[in-house]
Design a protein around this nucleic acid. Structure first.
Lengths: 335, 335
DNA sequence: CTATGCGATGTAAGCGCTTACAAGGCAAGC
DNA sequence: GCTTGCCTTGTAAGCGCTTACATCGCATAG
């Protein structure tokens, strides 16, 4: 019992395959009487078009690929969900791959997606080998960069200014009186979002003639944040503010502070970035930066589709807002 | 500048398309001298096979579909990641869709995936319209059910016994002396995992001749958990243990308890389910049930592939372990 | 030296669909 | 009545690949 084909439907409806195809793809080109007959045959047979055949004939796969660092993080999941919703509405299918923050894996995934017929790509950040851009160029596969924004870089992007957002947050903290500032970040290597956030911290400090007391790079998990905080305070006990590159590290740092008996924010302030649900549930709640994931995902989807269909799309820069909460307070002994 | 085809490669290497195809798919059937020549042509031209054409000719898409309730939850993300890793290793591509816990959407997604050529499906739980099973049967698309396990149901499943795990946890709590137990759960409608966990609570209670004091169904988020807890304690202030259907609700409940000034676990114990990272970061840490997501994802992938390739696969039931932490304690005033 | 067999390669027929082009029918205009 | 042109439908040529079968060449056996 094989699945019915266009031809089966045509035979049953007593028309040619071309007519059936037209009924499905351009119903207005077929007179109603015929169309109804064909549709009935389609229903009777439970016919469903074969995507591979259609793609081959049309030379279009209607597939978009996305390579994200990890699925196991709410920030990408939410944006990706929005991305997919919009794509699906436009008749596209999304192929997702994750790189685990490994550039080598990311490159493989990109090639795989393209080989799989992706007509356009969603990529996170700008940090990748130039060969990849060349490859995509050669294969004529457009891409949009999300979760970052850099006007000096070519290519379409839908993101926000990680540096400016972080800078604003730290500037605010400095206005509260903080002077001894340390940072805990995910590894900067191969992660321009992390680098931009770092740069934002440095910029805010420099504006006031300050320097970063300490900088710890640590793997992206709660434990890493906790250990990093303890290390920072061992080396620089004068620190009054620990800026974290993301909420997960900040939540870990909060826990680290608790372990060594420090009160947040009385003894030390801690900030995060991303405003994931976790930021609101920990105590004290995390001061952080809210990133408009859904909006970004939706805008990115529209951009990719536009790129695929018309060859052009506009950059879109979204607003990332400071989100002040209890973990950031006035320093006990402003120096 | 269109992408090169098999024919282009064949022409350049001075062989037939059949030989090129063989070089790519069954190299041992081609003598080395020829093979090297062909491979060189492939490299020179930057040839990449066209998946649609291959799928059409082979009548295989090498695509597996998965419909999960949501991507925005670590528990599915982790399992799915493992699922995808195994599939990719086996030369399959994963197509992901999410239903947002809506049965109607899930059905649509399933149909879409099948229309897209999915040769096998990963589904979560058993709860869906019978028409869907019939549809999959008719289309000859095998599926495996994950995150649940029910020996009375037909079909291949890779999961764990939600009911038994919850029952064990509650039984343990009863041994600590709890007698007034309430439950906060995600909506039971259309969610057999939630129903099974609920049944597990009831079973443990019944064994001791007890009944559930209160049962609140609430949307799956932190706020829901917090409000539900407050409601429970307003109605049944004697409650000493609030069992939550998952960690997110439990974390919300923890927060709810804090708001009304109750100490956990001194005044009230709270438990979760899933053991997501959140469970370890909240204070007090959540007593919960650890679900082996990665193992499940991997096993599920092997099962789907086996089902697709051989038509058969074994059920696999994994162990979900109790995970005791500070949020579960001895009741203050055992009744 | 010829018959036999096998391994390497080529030939060509699809896979199911879209679509340019052709064909046929019919209404309107002359 | 015939032409014109539009509208509907049919015909058939691919899309790029796999693969059953045919072919060819050569080594081995008789």
């Amino acid at each position: 019992m094989k699945t019915p084909t266009l031809e089966d439907v045509a035979a049953r409806a007593g028309v040619s395959t071309a007519t059936v195809s037209r009924c499905l793809n351009a119903p207005e080109k077929v007179v109603e009487r015929t169309r109804l007959r064909v549709m009935e045959a389609v229903r009777d047979l439970g016919y469903a078009p074969n995507f591979s055949a259609r793609a081959l004939a049309e030379k279009r796969t209607r597939t978009i690929g996305a390579v994200i660092p990890t699925m196991e993080n709410a920030i990408f999941a939410e944006g990706l969900q929005a991305f997919q919703d919009v794509l699906q509405g436009g008749g596209y299918t999304l192929l997702i791959a994750s790189s685990g923050y490994d550039p080598k894996v990311e490159e493989d995934q990109i090639r795989t997606l393209v080989a799989r017929g992706a007509e356009g790509l969603l990529l996170v950040g700008y940090d990748r080998a130039p060969a990849i851009a060349a490859f995509l160029e050669a294969q004529n596969v457009p891409s949009v960069i999300a979760w970052a924004h850099d006007t000096t870089q070519p290519g379409c992007s839908v993101g926000f200014d990680n540096r400016a957002a972080m800078r604003a947050l730290v500037t605010h903290a400095l206005e509260l009186g903080h002077r001894r500032v340390a940072m805990i970040s995910a590894p900067l290597q191969g992660n321009d979002r992390a680098r931009e956030r770092h740069a934002g911290v440095l910029a805010a400090l420099k504006e006031r003639g300050l320097e970063l007391e300490a900088m710890v790079e640590t793997p992206y998990d709660l434990e890493g944040g906790g250990e990093a905080l303890q290390q920072v305070l061992r080396d620089k006990p004068e620190t009054t503010l620990v800026v974290c590159g993301n909420d997960v590290l900040a939540a870990g740092a909060l826990e680290g502070a608790r372990i060594i008996g420090l009160d947040v924010p009385a003894d030390i302030s801690i900030t995060g970035f991303d405003d994931i649900a976790l930021a609101r549930i920990v105590r004290p709640a995390l001061a952080t930066v809210r990133v408009p994931h859904r909006d970004m995902g939706e805008a990115a989807a529209r951009a990719v589709v536009s790129l695929v269909e018309t060859g052009r799309a506009e950059n879109r820069i979204l607003e990332a807002q400071m989100c002040l909460r209890a973990s950031l307070g006035t320093p006990k002994r402003p120096s």
